[in-house]
Design a protein around this nucleic acid. Structure first.
Length: 255
DNA sequence: ATGGTAGAAACTCTA
């Protein structure tokens, strides 16, 4: 089973690239973030023509998540229970017996800002929710744009980024709290020490200059960690014309 | 000393 995640930064702009990527890689599930569209205009027909189903929770202009899958996505959840949030950032569904959770963690803007406080509160609420999801579904995979680089190895220039948003201690601690419910970093299970990035700023030729961060992750429960075969970042779409600023990440599991 | 770029939408905000 192949499960992938990709922050597309507008599904309207990136739809041809997404359809292309589905055809090439044939994931069982592809989780999207920053679709930036209301449900009424979601391109369901194009996705169905490509052989996929979709569940989605979107809004105009900002945020928005979707899960594309070959098989039915059952028991969808489109909000963090008990956490009042107008922003569409979570989607969970069960696909072929695996609980797949798609997250678009708030960016946080800058350390100490209102958006940063929201990010930390959001992560706390998400951790509590996912603890319950894990108890109900031992086969759990939590993917998405976390907007957190877990460690300095995940940052092109740790000194410049030290203490900044995406790298601050409180954000990294919040990610560790989420891992502590019983999740592991899928990429690190497969690539313990390599420097691998998933996001590069559009500005200053950051991609060409390899000025990236690893902020998109595939977290897996113990049952899924035991089955993981591969996990990698696909740089090809980031080289494409009119790319998303994020690259897709994909994991493959036995069975 | 603050910009650079991209997207959506609308003359600004978010990332």
């Amino acid at each position: 089973m192949k499960i992938a995640t990709w922050n597309v930064n507008s599904l309207k702009v990136r739809l041809p690239q997404v359809l292309n990527w589905l055809a090439t890689h044939q994931p069982d599930a592809l989780c999207l973030q920053e679709t930036k569209m209301e449900d009424a205009v979601f391109p369901l027909q194009d996705i169905e023509q490509a052989g996929y189903r979709a569940v989605f929770a979107g809004q105009k202009t900002y945020n928005g998540v979707a899960i594309l899958s070959k098989l039915v996505a059952a028991d969808p959840v489109i909000a963090i229970p008990g956490f009042d949030d107008p922003q569409k950032r979570v989607l969970a569904a069960t696909i072929a017996g695996v609980r797949v959770v798609c997250l678009y963690v708030p960016n946080g803007q800058s350390v100490g800002s209102d958006k940063y406080q929201y990010k930390l509160a959001w992560l706390q609420a998400t951790t509590a929710w996912l603890k319950a999801e894990l108890a109900a579904h031992p086969k759990l995979v939590v993917v998405g744009d976390y907007n957190i680089a877990p460690a300095d190895i995940d940052v092109h220039d740790p000194k410049t980024w030290e203490g900044q948003v995406l790298c601050s201690e409180a954000e990294r601690a919040a990610l560790q709290q989420l891992l502590a419910i019983g999740l592991q970093d899928g990429l690190r299970l497969v690539e313990p020490a390599a420097q691998i990035f998933t996001w590069w700023d559009y500005r200053m030729n950051a991609f060409k200059r390899k000025m990236g961060l690893r902020i998109d992750h595939i977290l897996v429960s113990a049952a899924m960690a035991a089955a993981i075969l591969r996990c990698s970042v696909d740089l090809e779409p980031r080289r494409h014309e009119r790319p998303s600023d994020h690259a897709p990440v994909m994991a493959e599991f036995a069975g």
